[in-house]
C-alpha cells in the first residue's frame, strides 16, 4: 500500500470494500457469508480462539468457498461469550451466544451448510447501530 493521497482515493477505497463488509447488496453474487467471532479479552478468555479455529477448520473441511470468517471486537454480551455472528448476504445478521468450539462446528454444519437458524443459541440484539 503506497498510502492514500487524497480524500477521493479514500472514498474509492471505501466504496470498493463497502459491500464485502456490509454485505447488504443481494445483487452481488461475489458477496459471501460472513461469520464474525467476537475476539476481545472476554471472548478469548471464554474460548473464542478455540471457537474461531474450529469454525475455520470446519469451513475448510467442507470447502465452503463462499464463507469468510473474521474476528471482531466485543459486542458487549459478556455473559454469553463467545459470541458469533452469521450474516448471509442481504439478510439480517444472526447473533449466537455461548458458542464453544463444538457448537462452532455444528453452526457451520447446520446454519451455513443447511440454512437452519439455531434458535436456541440466538441472543437477541438489544441495540441499534448508527
Amino acid at each position: 500500500m503506497a498510502g492514500i493521497k487524497s480524500l477521493d482515493e479514500l472514498k474509492a477505497l471505501r466504496d470498493k470494500h463497502r459491500e464485502s463488509v456490509l454485505g447488504r447488496d443481494t445483487g452481488d453474487s461475489e458477496n459471501k457469508i460472513r461469520i464474525t467471532v467476537g475476539m476481545a479479552t472476554c471472548g478469548i478468555a471464554s474460548g473464542a480462539r478455540e471457537t474461531i479455529n474450529a469454525i475455520i477448520d470446519e469451513v475448510a473441511k467442507e470447502h465452503l468457498m463462499n464463507v469468510v470468517v473474521v474476528q471482531s471486537g466485543c459486542l458487549g454480551y459478556c455473559y454469553a461469550e463467545p459470541t458469533v455472528e452469521v450474516r448471509f448476504p442481504g439478510k439480517e445478521a444472526v447473533l449466537y451466544g455461548n458458542i464453544d468450539a463444538k457448537r462452532g462446528r455444528e453452526l457451520v454444519q447446520r446454519h451455513i451448510k443447511n440454512g437452519e437458524i439455531q434458535k436456541d443459541w440466538i441472543i437477541e440484539k438489544t441495540f441499534n447501530n448508527i
Binding site: T41, C42, I44, A45, S46, C78, Y79, E81
Partner: peptide, 19 residues
C-alpha cells in the same frame, strides 16, 4: 480489574485468563 468483568471472578496465569 482486567476489564473482563463479565467473567468475574477472573484469574490470570501467565497471561491466560480463567473466567
Amino acid at each position: 480489574c482486567v476489564g473482563a468483568c463479565g467473567l468475574a471472578p477472573v484469574v490470570i496465569v501467565d497471561g491466560k485468563v480463567y473466567g
